[in-house]
């Protein structure tokens, strides 16, 4: 990595950036509004959508800002009448094919169309073949896909499992799970990264289908599975978790999630959840009781054993799934209230 500085001219002003800085990043750092669709910071620049074209002196035609690095002495214009017209026309081309999905997902394509104040496109291409899949996590609305390849690139570059492909060419080109199989039958690990990278909501979470994303509240917390500690946002609606998302640039996960972290939250509201204290009766079965009864039974049970066999005849086992505060309290209970150091967890690592 070079720390050399490059001086170039952007929109009439000289600007200094690190060598290797893309024109897109340079434009953004200066506050220049350059529209993008296929670009995602976590992915290598693609340059396919052509929304971020900028003018470069000496180049035969505009260049994609995402895919062009600043170099010494360049003269670049991020806006002009011609650029505005070309970008707007390309957006119009997209809208000739794109059919926004229903279901409340944010759609960058529609936003771009609005930004260029587009009316009805001059041509409407036919609908694509619908895609049905029996996996329960990831849905695909083919007509909303704009072939930006973000999902394909996410799967190739970040997950490196190549479970999605840009298939065919020309009017028949589509994105699909590799070889047209079900998501369940490819090398797909159901991480849902493709969903998170889709700008139009073409790829979507089946579990959250139809839920207006803007109507959800989000609570930032930490994933409950492995020890990586991914920072997640629990999206809730009417008191229920409906989706898990993660923000780029945040936490050890930098916006990435695995299949468990993103999709396996049903247990939270599962009907098997314990909702009342239970006490084993004389019949040997567990029966629901009030908290007071349950607490009394715990106190009685622990006290009796302590009295008869001593504090060290009681053992405590904490879970590595609970919070620091929970497990701190448990060992404090063992040590300071019961009076034993018999406290352990399933700590193997």
């Amino acid at each position: 990595m070079s720390h050399d500085k490059i001086t170039f001219n952007l929109d009439g002003e000289d600007m200094q950036v690190d060598a290797g800085t893309s024109l897109l990043d340079a434009c953004r750092s200066k506050g220049a509004q350059v529209p993008t669709l296929c670009h995602e910071d976590r992915l290598e620049p693609f340059g396919g959508c052509r929304m971020c074209l900028v003018e470069l002196d000496g180049a035969p035609r505009p260049v994609p800002a995402c895919k062009t690095n600043a170099s010494e002495g360049m003269v670049v214009r991020s806006a002009s009448e011609s650029l505005e017209r070309v970008r707007g026309t390309i957006a119009e081309m997209f809208m000739a094919e794109h059919r926004p999905s229903q279901g409340g997902r944010p759609n960058a394509m529609e936003k771009v169309a609005k930004r260029f104040d587009l009316g009805a496109p001059p041509i409407q291409f036919p609908k694509r073949t619908e895609y049905h899949d029996h996996n329960r996590f990831i849905g695909f609305d083919t007509d909303a896909c704009i072939l930006c390849n973000r999902c394909v690139r996410y799967c190739d570059e970040i997950m490196q499992v190549t479970a999605l492909e840009h298939f065919g060419q020309g009017p028949d080109a589509i994105v699909q799970p590799t070889d047209g199989l079900s998501f369940l039958d490819t090398s797909c690990e159901l991480c849902g990264g493709c969903v998170s990278s889709c700008p139009t909501g073409a790829l979507y979470e089946k579990q959250a289908q139809g839920i207006e994303e803007s109507s959800c509240e989000t609570t930032r917390t930490v994933c409950t599975f492995c020890g990586v500690g991914c920072v997640i946002d629990l999206n809730t609606k009417d008191g229920n978790v409906v989706k898990v998302t993660a923000e780029e640039g945040v936490g050890p996960n930098d916006g990435h999630l695995c299949t468990k972290g993103r999709f396996a939250w049903q247990f939270i509201h599962h009907e098997d959840r314990l909702s009342e204290p239970l006490v084993r009766g004389d019949d040997g079965e567990l029966h629901a009781v009030s908290w007071e009864e349950a607490y009394a039974r715990v106190v009685e049970g622990l006290s009796k054993v302590k009295q008869e066999h001593g504090a060290d005849s009681i053992g405590f086992l904490a879970s590595s799934r609970c919070t620091n505060e929970d497990v701190y309290a448990l060992q404090k209970l063992a040590r300071s209230v019961i009076g034993t150091n018999n406290v352990h967890s399933c700590a193997a690592t």
């Binding site: 396919g48 081309m93 041509i123 080109a173």
Partner: peptide
């Protein structure tokens, strides 16, 4: 239109439109 590699939008959709 048929032979566009479908990487960039103007070629993919422009040729298709003019063909139509």
């Amino acid at each position: 239109a048929d032979e566009s590699c479908s990487q960039c939008t103007p070629c993919r959709l422009g040729n298709r439109a003019f063909s139509d």
